[in-house]
């Protein structure tokens, strides 16, 4: 029933973290994760890697219904604590195809402590089409980006999220094996 996590938790988590750090430092530049654990049921392998890397008993996660095997594995490997509602959670996990809670309803931090905000793990299909042009910290020059499988109206919600800067949420866009960071500092123009 329990899924195996990384072969080497210490080294693999470090590798995945460095990839995540790089992804947020240079937003919307898809990076291939250097190591992947066996996928948890209902989730992409890259998502499983991020959960093992970021989640422990000190944070809460909200997700729509997850397979029992996935929950059991996350409880075992990460001491997972589930939040009752997305509004309370430190991490929001959105498997491919799930509805996006309004970004404006999630924890956005306070003016004194904008870091006390949610991080959204959002699964997408792929990073091929070019939907938006993005700029901001981490962009040497504006970069074009797109993802298939994004929830409808994601980009317009994103613009509202960025407009609250320094408050706001940060998003990690996840395909099967890749990751693109979308920190609240990123300015996005559609089209």
């Amino acid at each position: 029933m329990l899924q195996q996590a990384f072969d080497n938790m210490v080294q693999d988590c470090q590798q995945v973290f460095r990839c995540t750090l790089a992804a947020l430092a240079e937003p919307l530049l898809p990076l291939t994760l250097p190591c992947l654990p066996p996928a948890l049921p209902g989730l992409k392998p890259a998502t499983s890697a991020l959960l093992y890397t970021l989640i422990d008993q000190d944070v809460t996660l909200w997700a729509p219904a997850l397979p029992a095997a996935t929950l059991a594995s996350l409880r075992f490997h990460c001491a997972l604590r589930l939040a009752d509602t997305p509004e309370q959670a430190d991490f929001i996990l959105l498997p491919a195809g799930s509805a996006l809670p309004p970004l404006s309803s999630l924890r956005a931090g306070s003016p004194e402590y904008p870091d006390r905000s949610a991080t959204v793990l959002l699964e997408v299909e792929d990073f091929t089409p070019q939907q938006v042009e993005a700029s901001g910290p981490g962009f040497a020059s504006p970069r074009r980006f797109g993802a298939t499988g994004l929830p409808p109206a994601f980009w317009s919600q994103w613009q509202a999220n960025h407009a609250r800067f320094p408050l706001g949420v940060d998003v990690l866009l996840i395909s099967a094996t890749q990751l693109a960071g979308l920190p609240r500092s990123t300015v996005v123009q559609e089209g």
């Binding site: 988590c13 973290f17 750090l21 947020l24 890397t53 422990d56 904008p114 870091d115 991080t119 920190p183």
Partner: peptide, 25 residues
């Protein structure tokens, strides 16, 4: 590895991700 226990590393890593998302804060 690297002295700190894995929980402490995760705490620091989460904080670093927020730091990168809010430059200079």
């Amino acid at each position: 590895f690297a002295f700190l226990d894995e929980n402490t590393k995760r705490m620091l890593r989460r904080a670093l991700l927020k730091a990168v998302a809010i430059p200079g804060y």
